[in-house]
């Protein structure tokens, strides 16, 4: 219970003293992870917490989990409680963009203040070891031949994995509304379906299936990153003639209607954290790819992602 009361206390202090701190060392922040313990956003929030405190860019940081509905429950709560606040942050990512559209969420990312894009992980397209598809070209030919019989496995419906499956189907010259995508609660459960040979192909974050790819149980055909990544043998979709790129990005947001100087202070603290060796060490340990972009660039990026994800979801028939 203690962290709820202390969060309340932190909020009271924020209301009492609306002074934006000039130096990062004074920051006492709380980060909302709009997912349960164990998820990607929870990991990102706790990693940011760790790096900000250790690199001296904040005095104390607390993480609160508000799980639900692809992050939209946490987003809705944050948009209300963090209005004008100088000490509250929210972690989010591409899945949230999709969830806002599929759930008809009343609150979207335009109502919060983007601060920085942090990480961007490649998704990987794999087939089981015994699959007849040896290359990406084999797979796209199979899709073009019989789109319904190409069964995909991946994470939640309308999430990044699903969107990539639809984009690849479209690029292969088939109807994206016919994509046969079997949604699992996460990469883990989808992995069992892949290893059991129940599906044709699978999509997940590269890190989640790295072990099976290295052991040869899964064959990686392509990654969704625009450029090749060091240490990953699979080449980008783009380099293999499928003009699709998708990055599973995560970023951090501040509340709605914050004063410019607050935004500047928070952005600086995060920019300094991202440059710190502590953060780089975490990225390496977790296998995350640095995808930092400052506030303004991040805001433009979200607008374009929103457009693209929306168009894909409409093509699949998951959003109106």
């Amino acid at each position: 219970m203690s962290f709820f009361t202390s969060r309340l206390a932190a909020a009271c202090i924020a209301v009492a003293a609306m002074v934006s701190p000039a130096v990062g060392q004074d920051l006492e922040l709380s980060i909302i992870a709009p997912a349960g313990a164990g998820g990607g956003w929870d990991a990102a929030a706790r990693a940011l917490q760790d790096a900000m405190v250790k690199s001296g860019n904040a005095r104390s940081v607390q993480v609160q989990n508000v799980p639900g509905a692809g992050g939209t429950v946490g987003l809705a709560q944050f948009a209300q409680s963090a209005r004008g606040s100088d000490d509250q942050l929210l972690v989010g990512g591409i899945t949230m963009v999709g969830a806002i559209l599929t759930n008809n969420s009343p609150v979207d990312l335009s109502s919060v203040t983007p601060l920085a894009r942090l990480t961007g992980d490649p998704l990987v397209v794999v087939v089981p070891k015994a699959s007849p598809d040896q290359t990406l070209a084999d797979l796209t030919a199979a899709i073009k031949g019989d789109v319904a019989n190409t069964i995909w496995a991946g994470g939640s419906a309308g999430g990044a994995d699903h969107i990539l499956a639809a984009l690849i189907t479209q690029a292969a010259g088939a109807d994206p509304s016919k994509v046969n995508y079997v949604a699992y609660s996460g990469g883990g459960e989808a992995l069992a379906a892949m290893l059991g040979g129940q599906v044709t192909a699978g999509i997940s974050g590269y890190g989640e299936w790295q072990g099976q790819i290295e052991s040869g149980d899964l064959r990686a055909l392509a990654i969704s990153y625009p450029e090749p990544i060091e240490g990953i043998a699979a080449q980008p979709l783009k380099a293999q003639g499928v003009d699709v790129e998708l990055v599973n990005w995560r970023g951090v947001f501040a509340g709605p209607d914050i004063p410019d100087e607050t935004k500047a202070a928070l952005s600086t603290a995060i920019a300094n954290t991202v440059k710190s060796p502590e953060w780089q060490e975490i990225l390496k340990a977790r296998g995350w790819t640095d995808y930092y972009a400052p506030a303004d660039e991040f805001a433009t990026f979200i607008a374009s992602e929103n457009e693209r994800v929306g168009a894909t979801l409409r093509a699949i028939g998951l959003a109106k």
Binding site: A69, V73, S105, S156, A157, A183, L318
Partner: peptide
């Protein structure tokens, strides 16, 4: 939220029921 389509069922627009 239905796991396979991501659509909400019987939630009557109450966000707390989404999960």
């Amino acid at each position: 939220i239905d796991q396979l389509t991501g659509q909400t069922r019987l939630t009557f627009g109450v966000p707390n029921l989404f999960d």
